[in-house]
């Protein structure tokens, strides 16, 4: 029953979505919006779970004086203090908003900014010409780089055109091919779940036999 009930609910929800999308009656009943609302409510409850999980793990770190335990203590204090402040002031409150804009947003930008350095080191490894594919990638990358960098135009005026052609035709064609396969793949996964063939989300991979 522990597995059958979720499988039944999944199958019914899947069929409701299909019914709502393709049949006029389903569209009028607006069942998918109701399902979406239920999903939002469940997710809201789950935030409490997350808070509990973080608190439990870091409380243990502090209690057992594990390595770096002061950071765990700091996390617990900041997390709960910020939550209490939000409940007291609401999300548009002056201090609550200031902390969000002055601390969280800046940290976010900092982490995002380090991507540039990581791209450089990954590109250095990826562009070492060891195979034919790597050579093609290297040549395409050089053309695209010259196409967007100002120095490219100074060397040859048509770099931009070649670069645009690579991006708009070769790149888009490849990308859409991958997307097409991915959409069909995701569709197959959805079908496997609706039909109860795939049960990984309930524990175990497939129809119940041993993993090879």
């Amino acid at each position: 029953m522990r597995k059958e009930l979720p499988m039944f609910i999944t199958a019914v929800s899947g069929l409701v979505v299909v019914f709502s999308r393709y049949f006029q009656l389903g569209e009028q009943w607006n069942l998918t919006t109701t399902l979406d609302r239920w999903s939002l409510v469940s997710a809201a409850f789950a935030i409490g779970l997350g808070l509990g999980n973080l608190t439990r793990i870091h409380y243990r770190n502090v209690k057992r004086r594990r390595e770096h335990w002061p950071f765990s203590l700091y996390l617990i204090i900041v997390m709960w203090a910020y939550m209490i402040l939000g409940l007291y002031q609401d999300v548009e409150g002056t201090h609550f908003r200031w902390i969000y804009d002055a601390v969280l947003m800046q940290l976010s930008a900092t982490i995002y900014g380090i991507i540039a350095f990581y791209i450089s080191s990954a590109a250095y490894r990826a562009f070492k010409i060891r195979t034919r594919e790597a050579a093609v990638m290297m040549i395409a990358a050089v053309i695209v780089m010259f196409g967007v960098a100002p120095i490219g135009d100074a060397i040859w005026a048509n770099w931009g055109k070649v670069s645009d052609w690579i991006m708009n035709y070769l790149n888009v064609a490849g990308r859409r091919g991958i997307l097409l396969g991915a959409y069909l793949g995701s569709f197959a996964v959805a079908m496997r779940i609706i039909l109860g063939l795939e049960r990984a989300h309930l524990g175990g991979i497939g129809t119940g036999t041993t993993i090879q």
Binding site: L179, G185, G206, I211
Partner: peptide, 13 residues
């Protein structure tokens, strides 16, 4: 892309 969606079938055989 789609290779990741074939994972459950591939791993369970």
């Amino acid at each position: 892309g789609e290779e990741m969606y074939a994972a459950s079938a591939y791993l369970s055989k």
